[in-house]
Design a protein around this nucleic acid. Structure first.
Lengths: 211, 211
DNA sequence: ATATAACGGAACGTTTCGTATCGATAAAGA
DNA sequence: TCTTTATCGATACGAAACGTTCCGTTATAT
């Protein structure tokens, strides 16, 4: 087919991850975009949300402000992509729900502590208070994340580890809330024992009695 | 005593709520201060954190910006006082812990929904991401609030309603986290049944078995 | 080789923060 | 009654950041 060559080139050059882009010729320079995202991420890691401004990002990335605004319509959009680019914490599956939940929270906390991810997420929450798009994106992400954790509980329920009348989504909500609040109040340094005790209260409430 | 008259006058005029004030002659005009706080609160109620700026507050309160900065050192400080001026939701005591917790969450949710309190609190959380003082104040408030809820659980424990090995502070943390997260993700409209189901999971985990 | 388009840099207008200066006003003391 | 003092609103200011527009350059695609 004739279009193949064009498609190939577009694939190589474009990395067009955003299907909402209108103009045909519009495509990012991957190097430039990466430098901008890297700069934004490192600024957030160093100074948190206070140090995050489009101009500071442009300075650090040696990019022009118009370049940033060409690809990201607002500060919130850039923040959002930095956030989405980060690696997800995946749910462990040890065969024991309590260990799964504790392991999940521990790796989430350490991920938030040891990378820029915590700062980015806190900034996104802050931005969501004054930006509608960020608020919607945050809500959507939170819903998806809860569903993911819910599946972890669903599997335990299938194993008979969890009582039949337990709603995994609600339990996942409790667990996720615990994590969020600790992030927002600078209490990520909890050790495993504390986390395990908190999880145990939830566990005792949902565990199958007839074992 | 000789000092009585002077003290009386200071009491009438000053309403010196801020002991950190340095200059002796410095005291707020209560009417002016109230107008400023009212303006800030109504702006937050109408447009949320987006509509909150010192200049907008000054315009609405028919006050000068320097007047605001004379009494509040920063945007965060004003936000904080608006927040602290709001009425607290007090913990019910029905003699049944589950009813207490559900009642507490319900009245907290409706208070956040139906007054400006929710907007103010969300704004405070946002501000805490870029202002150190707001962050410290938020952390302090959160600690105190958890302790308050913890006492509710402590009472139930004294009644024998809760297992002996339960740490009230940790359970209070779970409950408060649930509330915060729902505020931040625009999920305050939950009905009583949903809240009760969430609380029930916690309850089942902490309830005394030997009843 | 030429047209296209993204790029960095600079400048612009706007908004907001927080500060400084000014004259007016209202209350306290002599 | 007159003077002093402190607070008030108004206005202007510098600094910073947002988001936009223009320009000359560089790199890509045909």
């Amino acid at each position: 087919m004739i279009a193949d060559e064009i498609l190939d080139k577009e694939k190589v050059m474009g990395e067009d991850a955003d299907p909402a882009r209108k103009s045909i010729g519009a495509r990012r320079n991957p190097e430039s975009a990466d430098a901008i995202l890297d700069a934004a991420e490192s600024l957030l890691a160093e100074a948190g949300y206070s140090g995050f401004s489009i101009e500071a990002v442009a300075r650090r990335a040696r990019a022009g402000k118009p370049t940033i605004y060409r690809w990201w319509p607002s500060k919130a959009a850039l923040l959002l992509e930095v956030y989405q680019r980060q690696k997800r914490v995946d749910n462990p599956h040890t065969g024991n729900l309590e260990d799964d939940l504790v392991g999940f929270l521990e790796s989430l906390f350490s991920h938030w502590r040891e990378t820029s991810s915590g700062s980015v997420f806190r900034s996104l929450i802050a931005e969501a208070q004054s930006d509608e798009a960020a608020s919607a994106a945050l809500a959507e992400y939170a819903t998806g994340r809860r569903a993911h954790t819910g599946q972890m509980i669903e599997r335990a329920k299938a194993r008979g580890e969890v009582a039949a009348d337990v709603e995994p989504a609600l339990v996942a909500d409790l667990i996720a809330s615990y994590a969020w609040t600790h992030l927002l109040t600078n209490r990520l340094a909890e050790d495993e024992a504390t986390i395990r005790r908190a999880v145990r209260y939830v566990m005792r409430g949902i565990i199958a009695r007839n074992r």
